[in-house]
Design a binder for these strands. Structure first.
Lengths: 309, 309
DNA sequence: GGGAAGTACTTGACAGCGTCAACTATTGAC
DNA sequence: GTCAATAGTTGACGCTGTCAAGTACTTCCC
């Protein structure tokens, strides 16, 4: 498949995303008028569809700030929509449940959302409805299962030319996606140069990911002290994203760091690098420090993450 | 097609909506970190894809408050992202255009959105990608064209039993979708009773919409004074929504009111009745008064709309 | 069993998103 | 020329959502 063909598909999918979000009115003002905000409605929805969830569970699944959620729940409690019962097993937790009033408040919101979708479908002939539903099912099934083969990547030590690739691709990808200026590429070059010059083969390492002979990712592990290692220069190329390569690169680093006897693994990143942050979080890293600064031609919030080994 | 089957489809579509909005991360926090808010990004997107739009155009298409948009644009101007040039044809309007800086600020945002979609697709085998895109195309095409036959509704005068239907369905639909209590149904009954008792056949009218022998909608026109008429009890059943029936009922009212010699047509509604409000707006009505009140077991904002005939 | 570290949740402070209503400048209809 | 309508602006303000620090409880580890 040519990259022209992929490009055409990406554009088609983006067009669909715009069309569909407009169609279902997600961004429409006052889509849920009433005294409820969209977030409150989402919380109410989850409460109506779960058995005794805790606040933390809701916050995780809806991606809400714990403090914000706490206030929303207090509001619900004040309006007698939910009750909280302290968990017998763990006194810090509370189990939430909709009251009869809560279910009654949710019902019309749910009905309206239901009826909007029903009206959208009812406008179609039955045969067309069936086709739409089948198409939705196709999309959901294919995207949910994701990449079935989990593609065969080769992780290998660097070869001549690879260090240049790392500098080149960091420069290009970050300029394209985040607008970083040339200073960033220069910093990467400096890191790479120092890595090569002071390389300690027993305690440091670089992995290059390759697929079908093409380099598609990298990660470095460097020593900061006798007990602390640093993960650096994690990069996954566009065409390899979403396939678990990032997770594999981070895991490889963590495993090696443990084996090499480090007590702690740390890394620096920027708050805007969402995909990377998700990988670190999934691997068990925690943010220990944040700092506003201006680098690479942008105002950034840089973060230090740590993982105890 | 049984209504059981439609119900199954509605549930399938709602499940897809939840899955897909989560998939494309619309509600994810900081989906667009950077100094831009989601709304600002949407405005920037429109600016990048249009020729010299005016602020009002953008506001209409993105459904934004004019004041809010004005401030966003001023912010963009201050950051030298856009230029405004007063329209030669109409001194009130300004034409907006991205500057080179503006295009440069938009590029990374666009690149990231592009790359996210690309990563989503790249995780699939080429054949699966093609199926997803084809399915998206199916959905978009069928929903965009909407109801091709524009279904044949019969509008007719009321027959025995219809007044009861109007009361019954108003009570049921508003209880279900908005949680109104029995007071609302009682009010409808009162309106209907008075309409029948004082009916003036030359200046008042009631239309009942029917499809395949089933009643699916209603609207009333009643005299308020010698020159002012009132539109009342507009209702469109779930299975007939999105097919233009609402528009047709309103149009019928307006046409009759003109013919009967009224100078003005007014109506009452609640701010939360979005679908109805859109119909009124499209027919040329304007809001002339709003008022907070507590009715039908809820805190409401009732509105008076008027149309000069 | 006792201290340290971690987790569940709360609270105060605050930025900024988005709304509302009142305002100016201009246009267009009569 | 008058009057209503439209494009856009501005001030005021509530509410959403974020951040950081706090409390109460649990778990880990020696």
């Amino acid at each position: 498949m040519g990259s022209r063909e992929l490009e055409r598909r990406v554009e088609a999918a983006r067009r669909f995303n715009r069309f569909y979000t407009r169609q279902i009115g997600l961004l429409r003002r006052g889509a849920y008028d009433s005294p409820m905000s969209l977030t409150e409605v989402r919380v109410l929805y989850e409460l109506a569809h779960r058995e005794q969830p805790t606040a933390t569970e809701l916050g995780r699944d809806l991606d809400l700030d714990a403090g914000y959620l706490s206030r929303i729940l207090r509001g619900f409690e004040k309006r007698a929509l939910v009750t909280r019962t302290r968990s017998a097993a763990d006194g810090r937790r509370s189990h939430l449940a909709l009251t009869a009033t809560g279910r009654k408040a949710f019902a019309p919101l749910d009905a309206r959302s239901h009826d909007e979708v029903a009206a959208m479908l009812a406008g179609l002939a039955p045969a067309a409805q069936a086709r739409v539903i089948a198409a939705m099912d196709t999309i959901e099934r294919l995207l949910r299962d994701g990449p079935p083969p989990a593609a065969a990547y080769l992780l290998r030590p660097p070869q001549p030319g690879d260090m240049g690739w790392v500098v080149h691709r960091h420069g290009a990808v970050y300029a394209r996606e985040y607008g970083y200026d040339a200073q960033f590429e220069a910093l990467v070059a400096e890191i790479v140069a120092r890595f090569v010059q002071r390389f300690d083969p027993t305690r440091e390492r670089c992995w290059i990911a390759e697929r079908d002979g093409t380099v598609v990712g990298s990660v470095f592990l460097v020593a900061r002290s006798g007990t602390v290692a640093q993960l650096r220069l994690l990069l996954v190329e566009l065409q390899a994203r979403g396939s678990g390569l990032g997770t594999r690169l981070v895991d490889e680093c963590v495993r090696f760091a443990r084996q090499a006897g480090y007590r702690k693994l740390m890394l620096w990143t920027q708050s805007e690098l969402r995909a990377a942050r998700r990988l670190y979080q999934a691997a068990g890293f925690r943010v220990v420090r944040k700092e506003r600064n201006h680098s690479f031609g942008k105002a950034l919030v840089s973060e230090t993450w740590e993982l105890d080994l």
